[in-house]
Simulated scan of single mutants.
Amino acid sequence: MARKNNSMNATTHEAPAPITHWSGNFDKTQAHRPGGLLMAALVQCASERGQSMHEMAEAIGYSYPYLNLLIAGTRRVDQISDDFAQACALYLRVPRMTVLQLAGRIRPQDLFEPDLFHARALEPAMRFVAEDIMWGHLLTAELRASKAETQYCIVKLYEAATGKTLLPMELQARTLAREVHAMKRQLVKRRAALKRTQDSTAN
């Protein structure tokens, strides 16, 4: 009878709550400390999951003292290792590229072709948005005279809202990775074929 009760009790245990994704918000206090946005994201994510700093460090797989050095600015966040960036990406459940941006190891403009912010590409796109009956009236004089980066953001938001394409398509990182991988495979095959030809000629 006792075994039955234990069995019944076992079946009534609640399943552990699933690990939630990071909301995308930042701990405001931490964001202004030397650790910057990456540490602010980690602290916020830990808070959303009800974890202490020690529990967060354990979940990431790095020691709490190491995280403290990053938070305090004793160790530079923009010099984190690839392994730590990957661990943070897994913890936050975001792409590693996002972690590298938060850490300051790469800048947003590094993801775009060099001439993407050039006025020649943005001016006609901004004019198109300004002449749109539904959206044009939202462009204030301040927005029309804003920096290229801001104008780029406006145009991309317009593209997302309307489904239209006004700026040249950026090279997608995932597509590029596939292309590079395919090229490497072809190169390996060609080298192997060349080696076979050389070996047969030598014999």
Rank of each mutant, 00 (worst) to 15 (best):
L38H: 09
E58D: 15
M39Y: 00
G136S: 09
A141K: 13
D78G: 04
C88P: 06
L138H: 14
M126G: 12
A46W: 00
A125L: 12
H32M: 15
Q86A: 15
A40R: 01
M56P: 00
E149T: 14
F112N: 01
V99E: 04
G61H: 04
I60P: 00
Y64R: 11
P114D: 02
R49F: 06
G24M: 05
M126L: 14
S146L: 05
A89M: 01
L67H: 05
L138C: 13
L111W: 08
L102N: 06
F128D: 09
I106F: 06
A148T: 03
Q86T: 14
G61Y: 03
H32G: 11
I60D: 02
I60R: 02
A103Y: 02
A41N: 07
A125G: 13
R93V: 02
L122P: 02
I106A: 08
F84N: 05
Y62W: 11
P65A: 05
H32Y: 09
L69P: 00
E113Q: 06
L67V: 02
Q101D: 05
H118N: 14
M126K: 12
N68E: 11
H137I: 10
S63D: 11
Q151R: 14
V129I: 04
A119V: 13
D132Q: 02
R107F: 08
I60G: 03
I71W: 12
G24C: 04
L100M: 13
R75L: 14
H118M: 12
A41P: 04
M53A: 10
A119D: 12
L100K: 10
I133W: 02
L92M: 01
P114Y: 01
N68Y: 11
R105G: 10
A125C: 13
G36Q: 04
D27E: 04
G73Q: 02
R107A: 14
S81F: 08
R75Y: 13
L69Q: 14
H54L: 09
E48L: 05
L116E: 12
R120S: 15
S52Y: 03
L70I: 05
V77E: 07
T150K: 10
I80N: 05
G50F: 03
Y66E: 03
L42Q: 00
H54E: 12
F128R: 14
Q151Y: 04
I106P: 03
A40D: 04
Q30H: 05
M56H: 00
L102Q: 07
E113H: 03
V99D: 06
P65N: 06
Y64F: 09
L111V: 04
E48Y: 05
I71Y: 14
R107V: 06
V43Q: 11
S52K: 01
E58T: 14
G50R: 07
